[in-house]
């Protein structure tokens, strides 16, 4: 793939979007709030990568990270994200809101999976640049509502940050567990393995945020997926939006009104 790394077919579509038309999967409410925050949607941008995930023989007797799988899961998502950012860049966007990351396994795809990143590229209406401190369009998985609310707090998104860890949890644990049947107790090696794996995923995400000089991460969440490796191998994926404070001026956040809605 050439300088831009984007498959050639993306070009024609993006050119059309430059002439003022936009496409977006934002809801009407999200659209109005993104506008309220001072941004106009430019178009749906996406990135995709079909990635073959190498097999890794592990020592099934001990709990350990499957480093090769972790790398594959990270690199493939990174490629998809990068291509989405490049599409946004081609549109002259300041950022991408409502980013969704998805993994798809196809019937014909053996040990491969498609990694997809989709979001709506936006541009500031005041003509100023809102790109992040890396000079790239900011990315965020916040909804339009959350994006507007965040801008009210004096913070602004830098980038969607993530960390992943594919972890194998020892088979031997099961034997021990069975041996202990009949009494309640903690499966300590399970607990420890889950702890380690989650810590690794979260730490990697935090490292990304630190690398961006972020003030913090909002909307952080941890996803656990088995994908296609059976129940002992789990991917722990940590995701969130790294944010930074804009300026030093004090911000007064409007006092919210409390309501009880009558909707069912």
């Amino acid at each position: 793939m050439t300088t831009s790394d984007l498959p050639k077919d993306a070009g024609a579509r993006l050119q059309e979007l430059e002439h003022g038309m936009f496409t977006s999967d934002l809801s009407v409410n999200e659209f109005l709030l993104v506008k309220r925050a001072g941004f106009h949607p430019l178009g749906l941008v996406m990135g995709s990568s079909i990635y073959h995930i190498g097999l890794q023989k592990g020592n099934w007797g001990s709990s350990q990270e499957m480093t090769k799988l972790s790398e594959a899961m990270y690199n493939a998502r990174e490629l998809a994200m990068k291509r989405m950012e490049e599409e946004a860049d081609q549109l002259g966007a300041d950022g991408v809101v409502g980013v969704r990351l998805d993994v798809k396994f196809y019937e014909w795809g053996n040990d491969s999976a498609e990694f997809i990143a989709v979001g709506t590229a936006v541009k500031a209406e005041d003509g100023r640049s809102y790109r992040n401190n890396q000079g790239k369009p900011f990315t965020s998985d916040l909804s339009g509502q959350d994006f507007w609310t965040l801008t009210q707090t004096g913070y602004f998104p830098l980038a969607l940050v993530m960390g992943t860890c594919v972890y194998h949890i020892a088979h031997r644990g099961i034997g021990q567990a069975l041996g202990q049947m009949g009494r309640n107790g903690e499966l300590e090696n399970f607990t420890q393995a889950m702890y380690d794996a989650r810590e690794l995923a979260m730490k990697r995400m935090q490292d990304e945020a630190t690398g961006l000089a972020a003030a913090g991460v909002v909307g952080m969440r941890l996803e656990e997926k088995n994908h296609m490796w059976g129940e002992h191998t789990i991917e722990f994926l940590s995701l969130g939006t790294a944010v930074a404070r804009v300026g030093n001026a004090p911000v007064s956040i409007p006092q919210p009104t409390t309501i009880i809605s009558f909707d069912n």
Partner: peptide, 23 residues
């Protein structure tokens, strides 16, 4: 089979199809 590698021809095929729907 042991390698982590992007399948570029697969990526391009699906990318093209998705872009076509959007186009």
């Amino acid at each position: 089979v042991r390698q982590n590698v992007e399948l570029t021809n697969f990526t391009e095929t699906l990318y093209a199809a998705r872009e076509l729907a959007m186009q």
